[in-house]
């Protein structure tokens, strides 16, 4: 068995295991999905109340694509936290698997899960609101999401370090990061309404560029060339954040092994 085959098989182990967990926790999955749909509907009805078709569509896009980004982020960021809660962290960490393969597996499942979750919400919201998609450029939206997913994965890997370093507070910290991204990234409003210091943070958040690019594609029919100013920051962030995340994860694992933080707690 070649190293590539072995590592691919190991990465698939995490996809299969996470799928089995989703299946076993189907009740919770359903509950989370209902909550996500309810949240997206509640936000989108604000636009409907105003009688503003463009505002409604903008809010629907924000709700749907934020759901995708936050689902992917939290799935990756909680990779370590889950194992800690279940008590399997030590077993997984002593298996002969490269950390990149482990994170590739977790990331692949997160992307698949996010797509399925988001598709269901998209279908429900399309049924509720008569959205005019005649101008929409789906290629732009898909392209921006594909490029943007890399940077979200990179931030997710970095956030996954926190539960490795901080046994109890780590998971809480990842939740705070996710909340900050929600506030500064212009999910439901333009980032121009934010105070100036928050606009600086908005420029550092990949979600800002993803949502801006997707909105321009779906609302205005912009092409990928038209949203180049959203694409290049995302490409740079993806290229920097994933290798940095993997490197930092390795350093954090070493630190955890030195200080004994892999040990099961609770």
């Amino acid at each position: 068995m070649t190293a590539v085959t072995r590592e691919t098989g190991a990465a698939f182990a995490f996809v299969e295991r996470n799928f089995n967990l989703s299946r076993r926790y189907w009740g919770w999955e359903l509950a989370f999905l209902v909550y996500a749909i309810a949240g997206a509907l509640a936000i989108s009805f604000i636009g409907a109340e105003q009688g503003d078709q463009r505002l409604t569509f903008s809010l629907v896009i924000g709700a749907i694509f934020w759901n995708y980004l936050s689902t992917v982020f939290s799935f990756i960021a909680e990779t370590i936290a889950w194992e800690r809660w279940e008590g399997t962290l030590e077993y997984t960490m002593m298996a002969p698997v490269r950390r990149a393969s482990q994170l590739l597996g977790s990331t692949s499942y997160a992307l698949l899960y996010g797509l399925v979750h988001t598709t269901v919400i998209l279908v429900v919201l399309t049924l509720f609101f008569e959205l005019d998609l005649s101008q929409a450029n789906f290629v732009t939206a898909a392209g921006i999401m594909a490029i943007g997913s890399f940077s979200i994965v990179g931030i997710g890997i970095m956030a996954a370090i926190l539960p490795l370093l901080y046994v109890e507070r780590g998971a809480q910290m990842t939740f705070v990061i996710q909340s900050c991204l929600l506030v500064v990234s212009g999910v439901y409003y333009s980032v121009e309404v934010l105070p100036e210091w928050m606009q600086v943070l908005a420029r550092l958040s990949p979600a800002t560029y993803i949502l801006d690019g997707v909105r321009r594609g779906l609302l205005d029919g912009a092409t990928l060339a038209d949203v180049w100013y959203d694409i290049w920051p995302l490409a740079i962030m993806g290229a920097v954040l994933i290798p940095s995340g993997l490197w930092l994860f390795g350093r954090a694992e070493r630190y955890a092994k030195r200080t004994g933080k892999l040990k099961r707690v609770g």
Partner: peptide
């Protein structure tokens, strides 16, 4: 070369023995 059995049986408790062992099998190639 190694494997370990600890005092706490470390499993994903919602998964079945087969699902847990299938995960281990894939990790070890």
């Amino acid at each position: 070369l190694i494997n370990r059995v600890s005092v706490d049986a470390a499993f994903f408790k919602k998964l079945s023995p087969y699902e847990n062992l299938a995960f281990a099998a894939r990790l070890y190639g």
